[in-house]
Each structure stands twice: as structure tokens, then as C-alpha cells.
């Protein structure tokens, strides 16, 4: 437990958050390597079932990163995504998973620093929460081969 390294999935929209992540790269800003990005055209494309799938498969945290409010390349995909994330939070807490494990974040394409800072903050938060409870259940169920 002492060396718990969370696995975090970040669904990033192509136009803002993914570009901000690249920007963090060109500015050589370092952030935890725990965060892995899945690129989507718009956070409006992030399906509830994919967020849940990530938790189901053992991700310790998930966040959806889109454009700033009003800046969505597709008008309001980020607002729809935020609504979905709120719904997932509810679902998670109903089944006993901390709702803080999923977040909606917004940033503009130029915010490399914000991307790096968000990745750092969220990794720290999930590290403090400990592993995804799903893992314990699975570990308990695992039978020796």
C-alpha cells in the first residue's frame, strides 16, 4: 500500500485539453506519469459506459478534460460531459466507490501549466484515496489457478 501508484485515465478533447497536454510537453512541464490520455474529438463524446468501464477494469481515477465553458469547439459538448460526469459520480457512490474518483475539468488549449497542475493534483488526490475498491473485491475473488 505504501507504494500505491494509481492508474488514472484522462479523456481529453482534441481541441483543448489534448492540445494543452502537448503544450505542457513543449514547455517541458513535468507531471505524474500515472495519467494516461484517451483522445476524443470532444468531451461530449465521452460515454458514461466508458468511464464506468475504466473503473470496472481497475482504473483508480478518471477525469474528463474539455474546453473552458463557452469555448467548446462544438458549442456545448463540455457542458453535456459535465452532466454525465455528475451522473457517474452518483452511480459510483451508490455502489460504494468514492465519487471523488471522477472529475470534470476544463482548460483552454494554451493552458499547458494548468494541464500539468491538474494531473499533479488529481494524482495526489487519488493516491490519498487509495486503490479502486473494485480491485479488493476482485483480489478477494481471485482463486489460485
Amino acid at each position: 500500500m505504501g507504494n500505491f501508484e494509481p492508474v488514472i485515465v484522462a479523456f481529453c478533447c482534441h481541441y483543448c485539453a489534448y492540445t494543452a497536454a502537448d503544450m505542457a510537453g513543449s514547455m517541458r512541464l513535468s507531471y505524474p506519469s500515472n495519467v494516461k490520455i484517451v483522445r476524443v474529438p470532444c468531451t461530449g463524446k465521452v460515454d458514461t459506459k466508458h468511464i464506468l468501464q475504466a473503473f470496472h477494469k481497475g482504473a483508480d481515477g478518471v477525469y474528463v478534460a474539455g474546453c473552458l465553458e463557452g469555448d467548446c469547439h462544438f458549442k456545448n459538448g463540455n457542458i453535456k460531459a459535465a452532466r454525465r460526469v455528475a451522473r457517474v459520480k452518483k452511480l459510483l457512490s451508490e455502489i460504494g466507490i468514492e465519487e471523488e474518483r471522477v472529475e470534470m475539468i476544463t482548460m483552454s488549449a494554451g493552458m499547458g501549466e494548468r494541464f500539468a497542475q491538474t494531473a499533479t493534483d488529481i494524482t495526489e488526490k487519488i493516491r490519498n484515496l487509495g486503490p479502486n475498491p473494485v480491485k479488493n473485491i476482485r483480489d478477494g475473488q481471485k482463486q489460485p489457478a
Binding site: V40, P41, C42, V46, D47, H50, Q53, A59, G77, K80
Partner: peptide, 27 residues
């Protein structure tokens, strides 16, 4: 943008290049 694909309850809509099974596979 794929909003329709994400909202469709029957999963009857797929956004080309970002199909559900590809995102699943990536995860």
C-alpha cells in the same frame, strides 16, 4: 463531435474514427 453517439441509449450511433469498441480496446 460525437455527442449523439455518447447519448444514444441504444448505441445505434457510432462516431467513425472513435468507435465505441476502439475506445474500449484502448482502455
Amino acid at each position: 463531435c460525437g455527442v449523439c453517439a455518447a447519448e444514444c441509449p441504444a448505441k445505434a450511433i457510432q462516431l467513425m474514427q472513435y468507435e465505441d469498441d476502439m475506445i474500449s480496446a484502448e482502455l
